[in-house]
Structures are given as structure tokens and as C-alpha cells.
Design a binder for these strands. Structure first.
Lengths: 193, 193
DNA sequence: TTGACACCTTACCGATTGGTAGGTAGCCTG
DNA sequence: CAGGCTACCTACCAATCGGTAAGGTGTCAA
């Protein structure tokens, strides 16, 4: 892997764990045993590095979701697939979700970043999916976008709660809670169908 | 208002907007036109200040929810009330939710803070509420804790998404989306009842 | 009247922050 | 083999970080 990619990956990890202000470019570089100026050669400023991380993160997320939601599956199955990918994400996807959650919290201030436009297509696609399904007589009772946002919110909030919930409950209790939470969301989809 | 309270309030605002690392004690003090050392007189360290903010925030949240959920209302109405308080919170409650969301994201690292134990009673109460209701024949299909977490997650995630959604959609579209989102969650409760 | 305390100040500290300046070693191309 | 480009380096910078030391001022009780 090239140095630039290594930097991008390590920065993604640190930004997602500690946030923008909690991460110094020195930390990022040091973990790869290169100097801070080595990093600044590839990314001319911290902001630029962060922007690059965001972009690659969003790209990864979209690419990761695409095969599950843009396939020739029935809308109901696409939603169920989406849910399962988000509820039990691979490590990188997990990181990306945390990162974007932080960005959601921060971007009232540092609001220039474009990730929203990257994610909008996904949102649009899902909305269109449900709407199309409604024309065939399904999902009659729901408002598409609100419904989807409800799903995304519940599953992502649970994800960031995991460390705390693990401390709050026993490992076993947590595990069943996690399973039940996913089942509840699946039931939400199938019962609205 | 005493200086200490003013500091606590201002710190709550800044921590909720910029996070722990994004806020300096100098910023907090300067906004009240007192010196940094004036602040350090009341709170001996930044960590102590943050801990005090967290505690007062959690206390406020619990006190704010209590009258809505510990009243002599039927469980179903208590849940609906809770939802409405969280979905359209007053400014301070809004801030507190953002703050605790950040804490949820951060506490894998800086994990000593006790807010989880403060919030657990609320969680327990809600869970007990649903369980009691189940014994009377309601909410038969759901797992109480998972169901509640689903509600809390959806409503809080929507809250932190608001600035981004406002940019993504027109003011009018956003407003109806917000209303629909709340209605969906209310429908979720009433249909599960 | 004295002294203890709460509440604040200025002055200062070492460490760390993001970033600049200026170099150097290796490689590719003319 | 000359020149330029990529990919780093050391050295340095001003600004800001959280925090200490020491002192001033007002209030209030002994």
C-alpha cells in the first residue's frame, strides 16, 4: 500500500475515534513512523486531509451499500439487506458510520464538506424504492422518507451506543439485546410492507 | 446568576457545539469576559469542568423527562409524551442531547464518566413500563428494551441530522419531513400497543 | 482591627498545535 | 549526465493549549 493510502486509512481511524479536534496530524504521521512533514507533503493541510478522509469514507460506504440495494431484488429485501449491512458492518464500514455521525454533529460549524451530497443519492434511491413499491400496493401506511430515516437512525444510534451498552449490561444481555433490536427493525419493515 | 452557573451554562453550550477537544477553557471564560484563571478558580481542571457539565446536563434531562413519564398516565401515553419531548425539545434539552451523543461517541476512550448510570434509571423505567403493559395484554409482539432503544435512536438521530437535512431539502420539505417522522414514530407505538 | 476566605487578576510556564522554509536522496526522462 | 520531479527529512515558527504561582480586593466574622 502506498504511503498516501496508509495515511488516509490511519487518519480515518483516528478521526473516527477521536474526532477532528481530538486528532493531530502528528499523531497520524507518527503511527506510520513518518514525520509530520511527510504527511503534509501528501495533504497540504489538516483540513485537506480531513476532507480527503471524508470523501474516501463516503465512497466506501456507498460502494459497500450498492450491491445490496441496487440489485434486482424486491424493495422489501433491499431494505432488509441494507439494515443487516448497517447493523453488523465490517470494521471499515463501522468506522465510516462513526465518522459521518461525528460530521453530522459538527457540520453546523465546519459546514463546507460535501458528504451530504454524496449520501443524498442513497437516500433518494431508498425513497424511490419505497415509493415504487407503494404503487404496487405495498407500504401503504407510511411516508417513505420518514420511514427510511427512522430505520437509519435507529440502527446507527444503536451502533454508537454499543460501547456504553456493553458496560451497562452483561455481555450476554447485550448480545440478545442487539439481536432483538435488529429483529424489531426487520419486523418494522415486514409489518409495514 | 452566579459566575459558577454562568460558566457551567456557557461550557455546556460550547462543549455541545464543538466537543471536548474543540473547546478550550479560554474560550469558555472569554465569552463571559473573565480570565481563564477565573474559571480555574471554580473548576480546578478542564476535565472537572466537563464532568460538572455532564452531571448538570444529565440531571436536567432526567428532571425534564420525569413529569412526562412518571406521571399516573397509561404507558402508551407516557411513551408518546416522551417522544414528543425528545422530538421537539427546548433549547437546553436539545443541547444536552447533542452533548450526550458526543459522549456516546467519545466514551470508548475517555470512558470514566458516570452519565450512563444516570440514564440507566430512565431506561429501566421505560422498560418496566412496557413490561407492565405487556402483562395487561398490550405490546405483545415486541421486546421492551429493544423497542424503546429503537424509538430513542430514531428520534435522537433525526435531531442531530436536522442541520444537514435543512441544507439538503427546502425549508418546507424539511418541515413536513420532520412532522412525518414524528408521526411515523407515534404510529409505531400505537400500532405496537 | 485583624485575618481568613471567596473571587478574581496578571504574569508566566512547558508542551503541543498546525504550518513554513529549505534542504536531500533517489528515480525517471531528455 | 543534466535537470526535474516525487517523497521525504530537519529545523524552526508563532499561536494556543491546560495549568501554576503569586498577588490584589472585597466581605464578613472574631
Amino acid at each position: 500500500m502506498k504511503t498516501r493510502e496508509k495515511l488516509l486509512l490511519k487518519a480515518e481511524i483516528l478521526f473516527s475515534e477521536r474526532g477532528f479536534y481530538g486528532t493531530s496530524i502528528n499523531d497520524v504521521a507518527a503511527e506510520l513512523t513518518i514525520s509530520k512533514q511527510g504527511l503534509l507533503h501528501h495533504f497540504p493541510s489538516k483540513e485537506k486531509l480531513y476532507a480527503a478522509v471524508l470523501e474516501s469514507a463516503v465512497t466506501h460506504l456507498v460502494e459497500n451499500l450498492k450491491p445490496n440495494i441496487e440489485h434486482e431484488l424486491a424493495p422489501r429485501e433491499q431494505l432488509l439487506n441494507l439494515l443487516n449491512v448497517l447493523a453488523a458492518p465490517d470494521k471499515r464500514t463501522h468506522r465510516v458510520i462513526l465518522l459521518l455521525m461525528r460530521e453530522l454533529l459538527d457540520n453546523k460549524e465546519r459546514s463546507e464538506h460535501a458528504h451530504q451530497w454524496f449520501l443524498k443519492p442513497v437516500l433518494d434511491h431508498l425513497e424511490g424504492l419505497v415509493k415504487a413499491s407503494q404503487k404496487q400496493g405495498h407500504f401503504q401506511e407510511i411516508k417513505p422518507l420518514a420511514f427510511i430515516y427512522q430505520l437509519l437512525g435507529a440502527v446507527q444510534y444503536f451502533l454508537i451506543s454499543e460501547p456504553t451498552l456493553k458496560k451497562l449490561y452483561s455481555a450476554k444481555t447485550f448480545k440478545t439485546l442487539k439481536k432483538q433490536h435488529l429483529l424489531e427493525l426487520e419486523r418494522l419493515i415486514t409489518s409495514a410492507y
